[in-house]
Design a protein around this nucleic acid. Structure first.
Length: 297
DNA sequence: ATCCCGGCCT
DNA sequence: AGGCCCGGAT
């Protein structure tokens, strides 16, 4: 956990307190803002994580990392990220790569529709934006697989724009620091605090610090996010369609084509369940059926 | 069992 | 607002 941090993190000495005047409107004083920033940055100086996608300003690399990191733990992304950007070095490369090749590389990350989204994003960036990823949140959210959190993160990390957003680590920090004895906390309540405490002089570093602090809180305490109004338990994986879809795509990524009976034999699930999942995957553009055999699209 | 630097569809 | 989409590490 203890590790050196990148050179850019040392620039924090002379950051301005540009958010201070606005902070006094809603229940948090400028001195409270300053104290909070000090605490977060103090932890970051000691324990900040040095992650591969934090070493770059390349919008393509940051996009890949942000999509991979959606509901996927850092440790699992690290290995995949470096290999992925080596094999597909830029937007045009990913845009012209067959989906089956991308999906093969995606194996193990989960939520495979993200691979389709990345390819579509790459195609549109290549065709419509001359290979340059837009920097504005309002534009980024028009791409498939990019919602408000991912768009804001990309905008802050790749373009140094002081966007305001919440993801799971940020949420945990604010619940812990500002809503100690409250339950059912909505993101709408948290968002103004995110805005008021944001270090607008270096949003990239600030959000890195905030997230690292949130990771620490989770390791050290119970998960405060259970007090979020948006918290919900995940449905069981065993026996789910997610499991079946994963098995199908894994089988097709490892072979040129597989028939439905072959899959039924291998997976040991009901024919109805297999068929409905195959149909759904075909509808979503993952797979194709040719002469009774299925292949990746 | 629980969670992950969420998005999308209904 | 609530359900679903993946898979692995703890």
């Amino acid at each position: 956990m203890k590790r050196g941090y990148a050179a850019h993190t040392q620039k924090q000495e002379n950051r301005s307190s540009g958010t201070a005047p606005a902070a006094q409107k809603k229940g948090i004083t400028s001195s409270e803002v300053q104290k909070f920033q000090e605490m977060i940055y103090c932890y970051y100086r000691e324990h900040g994580r040095n992650l591969p996608w934090r070493m770059t300003q390349n919008p393509y690399h940051i996009l890949i990392s942000e999509i991979m990191l959606q509901q996927t733990q850092v440790q699992r992304v690290i290995g995949k990220y470096e290999r992925f950007i080596k094999i597909f070095p830029d937007f045009s490369s990913l845009a012209r790569t067959p989906l089956r090749t991308v999906l093969s590389e995606w194996q193990g990350l989960g939520y495979n529709r993200r691979a389709i989204a990345l390819k579509k994003i790459s195609q549109r960036v290549t065709e419509e934006f001359h290979g340059n990823l837009p920097s504005a949140v309002e534009t980024l959210i028009t791409f498939p697989g990019i919602g408000k959190a991912t768009a804001s993160a990309i905008s802050a990390f790749a373009f140094h724009i002081p966007t305001v957003f919440i993801e799971t680590n940020i949420r945990r920090v604010f619940i812990h620091s500002f809503f100690r004895d409250k339950t059912n906390i909505t993101d709408a309540e948290i968002l103004p605090l995110v805005e008021k405490t944001l270090d607008t002089s270096n949003p990239r570093q600030w959000y890195y610090a905030l997230m690292d602090y949130g990771v620490m809180l989770k390791q050290k305490y119970e998960n405060f996010n259970k007090r979020s109004a948006h918290y919900q338990k995940q449905s069981p994986f065993q026996g789910s369609n997610r499991q079946v879809r994963g098995m199908i795509l894994k089988a097709l990524a490892g072979a040129s084509s597989v028939s439905e009976p072959e899959m039924a034999q291998k997976f040991q699930i009901s024919k109805e369940k297999l068929t409905s999942n195959l149909i759904q995957l075909e509808k979503e553009g993952f797979i194709k059926k040719k002469r009774k055999k299925f292949t990746l699209a």
